[in-house]
Nucleic acid binder design. Structure first.
Lengths: 231, 231
DNA sequence: TGTACATCAGTGAACGCGCGTTCACTGATGTAC
DNA sequence: TGTACATCAGTGAACGCGCGTTCACTGATGTAC
């Protein structure tokens, strides 16, 4: 029984299969319909309490109470609160895929900026919807938690791969300098995308609207990944 | 007695004064030399334990033990662990100043890229030295803790102001499109600077060296803030 | 320079809360015939 | 279609740990004369 099975998810190598039926209890048994619903409600409440109060005081007891279940029920599905958050993060690594797929479109043509804009808007929206879980994912990964690191890698990988490809293509076309490291360039763009939504409220106080932010980041990303001018 | 006085720091409006002597105990008394030393050791140990174990299990008891003091001593200077971390973060807002000052140099000339590189290198080094505290600062601010938000604003403000000025100048010179929001552009550059150091280990595994990362970010920042080509 | 007193700084030991966690159990659902 | 049994799912109540926090106290330092 691998460590990650405790979280009720299959190992990271095969998460892509979306085997919702293979969800397990903490003792390793595969669970049925009713139990899957309970587990889902526990996850949903975990996510909403995370948004309400932050990760600091998120207690098993509160999650259970909110679901209307005994704390013992929680432990049937998760080893602890972190484990539940990890499961939520793993789900996001899957549900973000349609957005990373948007990067498969070519940005080097006339409508490149439009496509960049659509992408940035979609990604910003994803952060709006999932900020609390994403923030914990990033934090725990930064803090060297190997399980969260694996999930973050899985989450970021499609973005990185697609962006690296764009940079290499632009370098081949002599639009981007060879001194740029393709990985680092992609990382910088992703870093801005992952960090900026957290500054949103500050910006809005200063009069920078959400749309202005998206427009700006789209232009910057478009330039960083294709070499087109910012003028 | 304002809230922030508890942390042993003066209020954020006048932190710039560096009034190390005005440090107070939790009961509001101004404290003497010996006590200032004790407080410093408590802060230093807090920072090092933060680096070792992360914020999750940082206990007052451990900090005290490591300093060789009673837990009661800790409470003479800080309301709790968060309060000590806030004090550390406040110190960083001051000690980062020399780096934000580097942004006062003009980047639009021939040596602009060199200056960008020096700046990025210095800032990356600052993250190397203070990552654990900076990460908590960013996290708590993201989590809407008002005290940490105030410190983050104080920390970021000089960077933002200097970068915004660069963007505006480049816009006036028609090197950057007017559609770029100056604040958002500065924010995106700062976001990449603040986030990328956390990806470092991942990059190094993939063969992207520290220097390559600095070179790349410097070029991207230089372009975003001056409009010079990336080719 | 020495003594007496005031204030500063630090502490040991204990209390008690709050939560994590478990276990023996009950109730619900599924299935064989 | 009904009955008996097996397994799944959920629970109440309690234990106990670990830590935060405090208080009455001791020891250290400073100062007045």
């Amino acid at each position: 029984m691998s460590d990650s099975a405790v979280s009720g998810e299959v190992s990271s190598e095969s998460v892509s299969d979306e085997l919702v039926d293979d969800v397990m209890a903490t003792d390793g048994r595969v669970i049925g319909r009713r139990a899957i619903q309970t587990r889902r409600r526990l996850l949903d409440v975990t996510a909403s309490l995370l948004a309400e109060r932050g990760a600091l005081d998120l207690k098993v007891i509160d999650v259970a109470r909110e679901v209307g279940a005994s704390p013992a029920t929680f432990y049937q599905y998760f080893a602890d609160v972190e484990d539940a958050i990890l499961a939520l993060a793993t789900e996001l690594a899957t549900s973000v895929r349609p957005i990373s797929s948007m990067l498969e479109l070519d940005w080097s043509g006339a409508d490149g900026l439009d496509r960049a804009r659509e992408f940035v808007a979609a990604y910003t929206r994803f952060w709006d919807d999932n900020g609390p879980v994403l923030r914990i994912l990033m934090l725990r990964a930064d803090d060297r938690d190997d399980r969260f690191r694996a999930v973050r890698r899985e989450y970021s990988e499609p973005f990185m791969a697609a962006m690296v490809a764009k940079v290499r293509a632009a370098q081949d076309a002599r639009r981007l300098a060879p001194q740029l490291d393709a990985e680092a360039t992609a990382g910088a763009v992703l870093a801005a995308l992952d960090r900026l939504p957290n500054y949103r409220q500050n910006f809005e106080k200063r009069g920078t609207s959400r749309d202005a932010m998206i427009e700006t980041v789209a232009r910057l990303a478009h330039t960083a990944l294709t070499g087109h001018s910012l003028a």
